[in-house]
Design a protein around this nucleic acid. Sequence first.
RNA 1: GGAAGUAUGGUGUAAUGGUAGCACAACAGAUUUUGGUUCUGUUUGUCGUGGUUCGAAUCCACGUACUUCUACCA
Length: 586
Amino acid sequence: MDKNMEAVAPEEKKSLNFIEQKIEADLAEGKNGGKVQTRFPPEPNGYLHIGHAKAIALDFGMAEKYGGVCNLRMDDTNPQKEDMEYVNAIKRDIEWLGFKWGNILYASDYFQQLWDLAVELIKRGKAYVDEQTAEEIAAQKGTPTQPGQNSPYRDRPVEESLKLFNEMNSGKMEPGKMVLRAKIDMASDNMHFRDPIMYRVMNMPHWRTGNTWNAYPMYDYTHGQCDYWEGVTHSLCTLEFVSHRPLYDLFVDWAKEVAGDDKPMDDNRPRQTEFNKLNLTHILLSKRNLLMLVNEGVVNGWDDPRMPTISAFRRRGYSPEGIKAFIDKIGYTKFDALNQMSLFESAVRDDLNKRAQRVSAVLNPVKLVITNFPEDAVETYTAINNPENEADGTHEIEFSRELWIERDDFMEDAPKKFFRLGPGKEVRLKNSYIVRCPEENCCKKDADGNIVEIYAELIPETKTGEANCNMKIKGKTIHWVSCKHCVEAEVRNYDRLWMVENPRDEVSNYSKEQGKNRIDIEDMRKFINPESLEIKKAYVEKWCTTKKPLDYLQFQRIGYYTPDYDSTPEHLIFNKTVGLKDNWKK
RNA sequence: GGAAGUAUGGUGUAAUGGUAGCACAACAGAUUUUGGUUCUGUUUGUCGUGGUUCGAAUCCACGUACUUCUACCA
């Protein structure tokens, strides 16, 4: 009678990560009215990459899990770097990953509010206009181990600051001439508290607000207040912002005070929580360095399948589900981890195995002649599209006397554990006959000794359902395409772009050794794999011409592939997503 | 010389004072008309030294190592 109880699988308990624990604790305490709201705040100055995907999965994931919204908020406080083009790319990438935002907002929506708050802070003696140069301010700032010094302008009259602040935005003030700073503590251990800059003069139109503003707010002065005004409860960001948190909290406190928010200081406010950035072996995520790869033509654009951008991953044939499964596996902690590419690939393969339709493609062809099959005969077989998913159906393939098989599937002098073709050896041709090579004269060679043709005889009645179909042989099953019925295709095989495990550190260390203070393209070339792209001609079965870009395919026994954007039925192009796991060693 | 954060097998991550578990990787075997998938098994770990406790990966102290912080970037 206990058997029934055992049969019920226990609900798999997944432990909560530290952020989920914190959210649940906040919820239990009734903070922010028991609500969860998040935001994903990209700066629209470049393409999203796999590191952003980790943040996206958390920001949107937490809102979804706890019944709140996640807004998409463009962090557009620096008109010098940002552009509309990126906004669209960012939206497309998030949608492709399968997330939905509540509203699309912009930091620039808050420019007026931020300005008004700044004016009020000046009036309250919490901010002042500093007329020193950037160099002077930097020199005064001190170092982490030495306190800074107060600016001579720190205690200037409120009216003076107010007047100058207005001039900063007039369009007539020379950029760099003056800045608005918060009056906090020049001796603080936290460098961000040493009178941080709130506003700088740029005299530059903003792609959204036009010529309305000439002075623009800084990130630190912007982020917390936007979160607060928007109703964000949990502001999730990466670990390098830990030391910004006290400043984030301070500006939120000030905004609450000025707003006359009578809720207690520790309630009705956003809380910043930091998690570890994604870091993967053999990839590099620095935006500046990726830009260099594009500009120097090391790769063919931001969505070159060797790039770590979301758009490149899409083009390469990784699935959103596979990417998300990987992110789920690595988790969110406070440890500066370096994740292995093998974990990513295993997550992707696991997903693709369920989705990809199986086709035959021969990448390194050599001709196999079935000597006892008539010249002009053709047989048609039914091939299963995906053994992992019966609903995917079947398609037809054709067989004839001359076939292309992989060069690797034949060896004259084979090691003991080689279970493919060779003198006197038998293999199963996938979906077709078992064939046997003769002991003697099993292949023809050219003058240089290269094999140009292999000969084999089919063994009758060995096809599916026939009398000898269950015949046991030592050989494996190999794939093939019929010479007369296949089509030619361009195949782009990608290998890792970086030859070292941790290009982030290796490139930067090398650059320093060269006495440079900035990484340049030559530093990077030192570690770039010169053979990261291999373009080759291949023979694929005809059914492949029906496949659309980004369809998930498996070239049987080789790997996962997807048609490129530029692929057409007349000129097929396939990108390699990832190889199949290969357990065969010599 | 300061401050903040972090430390669990090769890698990543659980265990929230009470049996150190999971995944990837590696290795071995079974199944297989993909050397894929699936299944089974094996190997490998709490940074160090003290302390508190019946009991410590977990709490405390002191070390050590790594990360971050000195942009008019975000």
